[in-house]
Design a protein around this nucleic acid. Structure first.
Length: 826
RNA sequence: GCGAAAGUGGCGGAACCGGUAUACGCGCUAGACUUAGGAUCUAGUCCCGAGUGAUCGGGUUGGGGGUUCGAGUCCCCCCUUUCGCACCA
C-alpha cells in the first residue's frame, strides 16, 4: 500500500496558491531579508532534478525560517533578456518576448509542482519596461559621474553570438555561452568603470566573513592587484629630441639594471611610429595585424610560441644609461600594465625564453651566493633570491626583498625616472552588446550636439516589438528606422539612437533591490525599505557566478552607496554555494554534471507522477552534503519514497498503541534528541544528516508501534514532532497528516519544536572498556557512575580479565559515561 | 607550474571537542505474503581466520612515519582526484 501522493500534493499546492501564504507586507518591521539566487533565465528547457536542487534547498530553508517565526521574504524574478530568446526567434519565428513570457509561465508551473512557495506579488521580469527603465536610469547616473563611458578599444568578439563580450564572459579564450573561440576586434563600446572600484572591491572581501573562502580567492585573483612601479625609458629615435618616453609597469623595479631590451605588445600605440622607418615595415605591420586578430586562446595559451619583431629602435635604460633594443612580441599583452615591459631575462623566465630565442643579451643583477659569475649562459633565471652585485656601487650588497624594492622606488622617484604604482588585472566592464533582446542604452547621437543622454523624463527608451529578426550580420535594432530615427533631446534636430543594448549582467546587478519596490513607477527602489531589509541575509547560488554576477552586484552596490541610495557597501551578507548534481552520461560513459547538452538529465515529471514531489525533495536533500557535488541514482530514490510511506503507515496505526507502556521515556528522549539534531543540522544546511535523523526517529516509532512498547500519547507526540521537523523537506505529506491528526492551522504557520536538554540525558549508558586502547567489552551502567564503580565493573568482565591475565595495570583512563582504558605495564 | 579542497564498505555517504569507525539510505542474501511483481514486510550484510553454535582472535578510514593511554580526526613526507588561476611583467 502506498499513499495517494497525487491527490495530496495537488490539494496543498492549490491551497498554498489560493491563500498566497508567502506574501509579505514589506512595511511591517522585519528581521530578515532572506533570498536565494532566484533570478533564473527562462530558457525554455524543461527544468530537471539538477535544477531542482537549488529551488528545493531554498524552499526548505524558507519554510524552516517561517516555522521558526522569522519574517522571511522569498521573492522570484526573471532574468529575461538574453541571447537564447533571440536565437529561438530566428530559428522558430517566435518573437523573443512571446517566447520568454511563455517560458516563464511554464517554469512557474514547474515550481508549483515542486511545492515551492514564492511571494509572487513581487514578481519582476527584466525584459519589461518597468524594470529595464531603471537600468537606463542607473546608466545615466553613471554617465553623469564619468563612471560610464564610450571608447574605441580592442574587445572580445564572439563570431557565433555576433556580439562583443565582457572579459568575465571569456573562459579560457572561449565564449562562456557558446564555447566559440573569441576573436579580437577594435570597436567603439560602452564601459562601466569598475576599475575605479578595484581597491574597494578587493579590500571589502576581507569583511565578508559569511562568504566561502573559495569565492573570495577567485575574486581576489580576478582583481589581481600588483604593487610595483612605472619606469620611463627614453626613446631617442622617435622624434629626435629624445624627450619621448616609453613607460612600463614592473613589480620588480629592483631589477632595472638587468633590463637588456624592451618589449611592447604589438597593439601598443607607439608600435606604428617605432617601425615607421623600418625597411621591412610592411611585413611587420601585417604580422601585427595577424597577432591582433588571432583568437585569444592562441595568444594566451601556455604552449603558444613567443613571436616577435625587432623595431630597430633603442630605448635608454635609466639605470645604466645603456641603449637597449626595442622589440614587439606577442607574449606582452596590451591590456595589462602599460602594454609594454622592460625585459629582464636574468630574472624572468619568459624574458629569458625570448632572449635565448632571439639571441638577446642577459645580465644578472642578483647573484646566488657562492655561484660563479654569470656568463650569459644562464640555465634558469634567478628568481627572488640572492644579493645585488656589480651593477652599481650604490646598490651593491642589497638583498632580495621588499625593502630593496622600496629603496629602488624611492631612488626612481628621486631621479624622476619613475614612480610607485599599483596595477590591477581587472578591466573595465564592457556593457555594450550588438543584439536586439536587451536594455537599450539611453543615448542619442546628434550631428550638432554629439553624444546626448536621453533625459530622465523620456525614459524608458522602449525596445520596439516590431523588428526584423533574420540572423543576418549586424544588430536588428540598427535596421529599425522607427527606433533609430529620433530627435536630439538638446536641439530638436534629427538624430540617431544608440542601438547597442546592455549586457544582461546589468539587469542582475541590482535586482534584489527591485523586489522591494516591484510596482514602483516613480523610482528604482525605495531607499527606506532597502535600508530596512537589506543587505540580503542569505544568498544561495552556484559557484559559476563567483566572479561574474557577484562581482558586478558588489560593484553596483558600492556605486549606489556612493549615490546615497543604500546605506551598505556589500549586497549579500552570507553566501552559500550549493554543489551540482551529477549523473551518468551515455555519450561520454562518465558521471558528469547534469545538463541538457550532455543528455544526462533526469526529468522530475515522471518522478513526481510516480512517487511524488515530496519524494524528490527528500531524496534530493538526502543525497549528500549540499555544498558538494552529488551523484543522482535512479534506484536510490525509492528509499525516500519508502520512508514517506512508512510515515504514512505509522500515522495510520497510531490507534493500535496501548494506553500505557514501558518505553515512553526512551522514545521521549529520542524525540528531543532528534529535535536538537535536526535543528542544528538545518542551521548548518546539513539536510542530508537531518533526513537521516528523521529516518531514525521514524524507525524507533515504527518499532514502538509494532511491539506496542510505547503509549498512544507518546506515539502521537513523536509523530507530531516528526511532522514538524520534516515539513520543510516534505511539505505536502506532512501538512496532510498534520491536518488528519486534527490540528488547527497549518504546519507552515505553526512553530518549530524545541528540545529540553534535561530530556536528553540517559539513565543508563553504554560504557566502552579498552585494554591498551583496544575495545574489549561494553558495560551497561548507570549514567554518572564514579570511576571506582566503573573500574570494578570493568575488571569483573570476563573478556577484560582474559586480556589482563599475566599483566599488570599501570593506570586507567576514565572518561565519564564514555570509556575506561586500562594501560598495562610491559 | 601556482593555489585550494578532498581521498572512509559493493555504492551514495555519517562520525560536534582526539574517545564504540562504517549512522542513514541504496544494493545484495535469506525468509514471509502474493497468480505474479522491478510492490510490501521481517532478518542479515566492513574484511580475513577459527568454531555446529551463541561466540572468539586479528585487520581496516589513499600509502609511509610521528605525537598520544587512545588518531578517520592533530603533525611531517609521499601518492591520487577534483576545482580555480596560469606568458598579468
Amino acid at each position: 500500500m502506498t499513499y495517494d501522493h497525487r491527490a495530496i500534493e495537488a490539494k496543498w499546492q492549490d491551497r498554498w496558491e489560493r491563500s498566497r501564504v508567502a506574501e509579505m507586507d514589506l512595511d511591517r518591521p522585519g528581521d530578515a531579508f532572506y533570498m536565494l539566487m532566484m533570478f533564473p533565465y527562462p530558457s525554455g528547457d524543461r527544468l530537471h532534478v539538477g535544477h531542482g536542487r537549488n529551488y528545493i534547498l531554498g524552499d526548505a530553508l524558507y519554510r524552516h525560517l517561517r516555522m521558526k517565526g522569522r519574517r522571511a521574504l522569498n521573492p522570484m524574478g526573471w532574468d529575461a533578456f538574453g541571447l537564447p530568446a533571440e536565437n529561438a526567434a530566428i530559428q522558430r519565428g517566435v518573437h523573443p518576448r512571446d517566447w520568454t513570457m511563455n517560458n516563464i509561465s511554464v517554469m512557474k508551473v514547474q515550481f508549483r509542482r515542486w511545492g515551492i512557495l514564492y511571494d509572487w506579488s513581487k514578481e519582476i521580469a527584466s525584459c519589461l519596461p518597468d524594470y529595464y527603465r531603471w537600468n537606463q536610469w542607473l546608466f545615466l547616473r553613471l554617465l553623469e559621474r564619468g563612471l560610464a563611458y564610450r571608447r574605441k578599444a580592442p574587445v572580445n568578439w564572439c563570431p557565433s553570438c555576433r556580439t562583443v563580450l565582457a572579459n568575465e564572459q571569456v573562459v579560457e579564450g572561449h565564449c562562456e555561452r557558446c564555447a566559440t573561440a573569441v576573436e579580437q576586434k577594435e570597436l567603439e563600446q560602452w564601459f562601466y568603470r569598475i576599475t575605479e572600484y578595484a581597491e574597494r572591491l578587493l579590500r571589502d572581501l576581507d569583511g565578508l566573513v559569511g562568504w566561502p573562502e573559495k569565492v573570495k580567492v577567485m575574486q581576489r585573483n580576478w582583481i589581481g592587484r600588483s604593487e610595483g612601479a612605472e619606469i620611463d625609458f627614453r626613446l631617442p629615435g622617435l622624434d629626435g629630441t629624445g624627450a619621448e618616453t616609453l613607460t612600463v609597469f614592473t613589480t620588480r623595479p629592483d631589477t632595472v639594471h638587468g633590463a637588456t631590451f624592451m618589449v611592447l605588445a604589438p597593439e601598443h600605440p607607439l608600435a606604428v611610429r617605432l617601425i615607421a622607418e623600418h625597411p621591412e615595415r610592411a611585413e611587420i605591420a601585417s604580422w601585427i595585424e595577424r597577432v591582433r586578430n588571432a583568437p585569444r586562446i592562441q595568444r594566451e595559451g601556455e604552449s603558444t610560441p613567443k613571436e616577435g619583431r625587432d623595431t630597430g629602435q633603442v630605448a635608454i635604460n635609466p639605470a645604466t644609461g645603456e641603449a637597449i633594443p626595442v622589440w614587439l612580441a606577442n607574449y606582452v599583452l596590451p591590456e595589462y600594465g602599460r602594454g609594454a615591459i622592460m625585459a629582464v631575462p636574468a630574472h624572468d623566465a619568459r624574458d629569458l625564453d625570448f632572449a635565448r630565442q632571439e639571441g638577446l643579451p642577459v645580465r644578472l643583477v642578483y647573484h646566488d651566493d657562492g655561484s660563479p659569475e654569470a656568463s650569459g649562459e644562464l640555465a634558469q633565471p634567478i628568481l627572488h633570491t640572492g644579493v645585488i652585485r656589480g651593477v652599481d656601487p650604490r646598490f651593491d650588497g642589497m638583498v632580495d626583498g621588499p625593502e630593496t624594492v622600496r629603496a629602488f622606488i624611492d631612488w626612481l622617484e628621486a631621479e624622476g625616472f619613475g614612480r610607485a604604482k599599483v596595477s590591477y588585472r581587472l578591466r573595465d566592464w564592457l556593457i555594450s552588446r550588438q543584439r536586439y533582446w536587451g536594455t537599450p542604452i539611453p543615448v542619442v547621437y546628434c550631428a550638432a550636439c554629439g553624444t546626448v543622454p536621453v533625459p530622465d523624463e523620456a525614459l524608458p527608451v522602449e525596445l520596439p516589438y516590431e523588428v526584423e529578426l533574420t540572423g543576418r550580420e549586424g544588430n536588428p535594432l540598427a535596421r529599425s528606422a522607427a527606433f533609430v530615427e529620433t530627435e536630439c533631446p538638446r536641439c530638436g534636430e534629427p538624430a540617431r539612437r544608440e542601438t547597442d543594448t546592455m549586457d544582461t549582467f546589468v539587469d542582475s546587478s541590482w535586482y534584489y533591490l527591485r523586489f522591494l519596490s516591484a510596482r514602483d513607477g516613480q523610482r528604482m527602489f525605495d531607499p527606506e525599505r532597502a535600508a530596512r531589509w537589506c543587505p540580503v541575509d542569505q544568498y544561495i547560488g552556484g559557484i559559476e557566478h563567483a566572479i561574474l554576477h557577484l562581482l558586478y552586484a558588489r560593484f553596483i552596490c558600492k556605486v549606489l552607496q556612493d549615490f546615497g541610495l543604500v546605506p551598505f557597501s556589500e549586497p549579500f551578507t552570507n553566501l552559500f554555494n550549493q554543489g551540482m548534481i551529477t549523473h551518468y552520461a551515455e555519450g561520454s560513459g562518465r558521471v558528469e554534471k547534469m545538463s541538457k547538452s550532455r543528455g544526462n538529465t533526469v526529468s522530475p515529471d515522471r518522478l513526481i507522477e510516480e512517487m511524488g514531489a515530496d519524494t524528490e525533495r527528500v531524496y534530493t536533500l538526502f543525497l549528500g552534503p549540499p555544498e558538494e557535488e552529488v551523484e543522482w541514482s535512479d534506484e536510490a530514490v525509492a528509499g525516500a519514497y519508502r520512508f514517506l510511506n512508512r510515515l504514512w503507515r505509522a500515522s495510520e496505526s497510531l490507534e493500535s498503541a496501548p494506553a500505557t507502556a514501558p518505553s515512553d521515556a526512551e522514545l521521549e528522549r529520542r524525540r528531543h534528541e532528534t529535535i536538537k539534531r535536526v535543528t542544528e543540522d538545518l542551521d548548518r544546511f546539513k539536510f542530508n544528516t537531518a533526513v537521516a535523523a528523521l529516518m531514525e526517529l521514524l524507525n524507533a516509532l515504527s518499532r514502538a508501534l509494532d511491539d506496542k512498547t510505547a503509549s498512544r500519547r507518546q506515539c502521537e507526540a513523536t509523530l507530531d514532532t516528526l511532522l514538524q521537523l520534516l515539513h520543510p523537506i516534505a511539505p505536502h505529506l506532512t501538512e496532510e497528516l498534520w491536518e488528519r491528526r486534527g490540528h488547527l492551522g497549518t504546519l507552515l504557520e505553526s512553530s518549530w519544536p524545541e528540545w529540553d536538554d534535561a530530556r536528553l540525558t540517559r539513565d543508563r549508558v553504554t560504557l566502552v572498556v579498552q585494554v591498551d586502547g583496544k575495545l574489549r567489552d561494553r558495560l551497561e551502567i548507570d549514567a554518572g557512575a564514579p570511576e571506582k564503580q566503573v573500574r570494578e565493573a570493568a575488571l569483573a568482565s570476563a573478556a577484560v580479565q582474559r586480556h589482563l591475565a599475566g599483566t599488570e595495570v599501570a593506570r586507567a583512563i576514565h572518561v565519564p559515561d564514555r570509556l575506561i582504558n586500562f594501560v598495562t605495564r610491559r
